[in-house]
Amino acid sequence: MSDNSFLDLLGDDVTPIKAEPRVTLQKTTVDATTLKERRQTAQLEAAAPEDPLSGEPIEMVEPLSLISFMRPGVQHGVYRNVRMGKYKIDARLDLHKLTMDRARKLVYQFVKDCVGNDVRMALITHGKGEGREQPALLKSCVAYWLPQMEEVLAFHSAQKQHGSYGATYVLLRKSDAKKLSNREQHQKR
């Protein structure tokens, strides 16, 4: 059906209704720098969720000291395998040359992403911090932040082939989907 045939059906005595616009729209003038700042702020807020980790480490560790942690309930055999580096590393994060605030946000997001993607073993490389004005700052921060996260079951300084005192193995909690999958698999036996 064409437009002309529709008008023919209506007849000659039909006229369109004329309506006045109810709202008068005015353009707001905001300079380009303000718009750019607003966009950058919105992007930063959207990209970085609030992390609950405290910023300052309580206790500084030595550059060549081992760092370790194990939650109650983790089996000693599992922890031994973490300590020995026997599990396959599924994800890695390098914190070299980052500020403490940036590193804290990255560690928080990294752990959340690992749990969301069913990663059980991760490696965080933070460096030893030898010869620095404040030795082992990031290493101390990592040792302080990781126990604050419920997702972290255990961590230990890495073996030589993975970075030794400058890196840390992190054992993460299973995701809910992985727990359910394991339950179903073991019930079939």
Rank of each mutant, 00 (worst) to 15 (best):
G77P: 06
A177P: 00
R132L: 14
I124C: 04
L138E: 07
R173S: 13
Q159A: 12
L35S: 12
H126P: 06
K36H: 07
D90V: 03
D3N: 12
L25W: 13
A143Q: 04
L180D: 08
T24Y: 07
A46R: 15
P52L: 12
T34G: 05
N4D: 14
T125W: 04
S140A: 06
E151P: 05
E150C: 01
D90S: 15
G85R: 03
V115H: 07
G166T: 00
L123E: 04
F69V: 03
L64R: 11
P147C: 03
K174E: 15
P49F: 05
A47Y: 10
Q185Y: 13
K160F: 08
H186V: 11
R173Q: 15
S68C: 07
Q185I: 07
A47S: 08
D90I: 00
L171P: 05
R39K: 15
D8F: 00
M60D: 03
P63V: 05
N81F: 03
M60I: 08
H162N: 15
D8Q: 09
K97W: 05
E133Q: 10
E45Y: 06
S5T: 11
D8C: 00
L66Y: 10
V152S: 02
S2A: 09
V107N: 02
R132E: 15
I124H: 06
V107H: 03
T41N: 11
T24P: 01
T168A: 05
